[in-house]
């Protein structure tokens, strides 16, 4: 088996290749940077729909970096990438449906007593 071959190679001392961690730390600093930016918005901007939209966009950026780089999905085959991404459309639909449901519930309860 191919795996046995590499196993035997590793038994010689000093044959472990050097760590390639540049991309990992770059992703880390991007994540920390985005989180810091979120706190800047949290403290220096009044709550509004715009602010919430900024938070959600920044969150999606963070999610992209975690899934693409840390979970390595970016470097998998196209078939696997789409198998994971496409079902997420169901979540988007559920979100649209239930949040408008919540708003409707609020509206009807508030207006009921008027």
């Amino acid at each position: 088996m191919a795996m046995h071959h590499s196993d035997n190679d590793m038994h010689h001392a000093g044959e472990i290749p050097k760590a390639q961690t540049k991309a990992i730390w770059k992703t880390f600093f991007i994540l920390v940077g985005i989180t810091a930016l979120e706190f800047v918005f949290a403290f220096f901007m009044d709550p509004s729909t715009t602010r919430n939209a900024i938070f959600i966009i920044l969150t999606l950026f963070k999610a992209f970096y975690i899934v693409a780089e840390f979970m390595h999905l970016k470097h998998e085959t196209k078939a696997l990438i789409w198998t994971i991404i496409i079902p997420m459309a169901l979540i988007i639909w559920l979100m649209v449906a239930l949040i408008s449901e919540g708003s409707y519930y609020f509206d009807s309860v508030t207006n009921y007593f008027k």
Binding site: P87, I91, G102, Y105, T110
Partner: peptide
């Protein structure tokens, strides 16, 4: 993990729904 994402997604969406339900 995909199925787990649905579970967490549903939880957070219910949070959104409840928030919109309240003043």
């Amino acid at each position: 993990l995909l199925s787990d994402a649905f579970t967490f997604g549903s939880f957070l969406i219910v949070y959104g729904l409840s928030r919109h339900k309240y003043l």
